[in-house]
């Protein structure tokens, strides 16, 4: 009998200059992380509209992680600072709504940190998996 292990659905927004390249480097170095993580490329972490995150949870995502350049290293000088502030507010609101704050994360991953990218994703996927399925914000009408 095959046991169907619970697989979380994780959306990762990665900035084009640091974190997406960091993810590429993880690939180059064959550093494995769970396939549950699906990456969406954005020019800068500050492009991530809270709307995207709400939509992801609404459609059944179990965790959302945003990766950007380290503070001070943003390709656009200050984008990641906006991200940090906006997401702090958003995550706190989501937490209030019942989306545990462990399901949301902002992480700084540089283009040189392939290993950090893989480690972050492994850790995040593990954390999210341990929380189980996220149902709080799911729009059941989206389920076919």
């Amino acid at each position: 009998m095959q046991v169907n292990e619970y697989k979380p659905l994780i959306v990762a927004f990665c900035c084009n200059w640091c974190s997406y390249a960091g993810a590429d480097l993880a690939g180059n170095n064959r550093l494995a992380y769970p396939a549950d993580v699906k990456i969406i490329r954005v020019p800068c972490s500050c492009r991530v509209n809270p709307m995207f995150i709400l939509r992801a949870f609404q459609r059944g995502a179990d965790g959302v992680i945003i990766c950007g350049c380290h503070p001070g290293d943003c390709h656009y000088t200050s984008g990641n600072y906006y991200t940090r502030r906006r997401m702090a507010a958003l995550f706190s609101m989501l937490d209030y709504l019942g989306i545990e704050k462990e399901r949301t994360r902002v992480e700084w991953v540089s283009a040189a940190e392939g290993a950090k990218f893989a480690a972050t994703m492994n850790d995040f996927a593990k954390t999210v998996a341990s929380l189980g399925e996220n149902k709080r914000l799911e729009d059941l009408r989206c389920k076919k």
């Binding site: 959306v11 969406i40 954005v42 020019p43 800068c44 500050c46 492009r47 991530v48 509209n49 809270p50 709307m51 995207f52 939509r55 992801a56 459609r59 995502a61 390709h75 656009y76 200050s78 984008g79 906006y82 906006r86």
Partner: peptide, 29 residues
């Protein structure tokens, strides 16, 4: 093309070509 303005815009008027709200939303979906 960083997109900081697109998120700051309260009326949804600002968008980013190539990484439009609708496009990223479609990817999320």
């Amino acid at each position: 093309g960083c997109g900081a303005c697109t998120v700051a815009c309260p009326s949804g008027a600002m968008d980013l070509k190539g990484f439009a709200n609708s496009q990223i939303m479609a990817e999320v979906d």
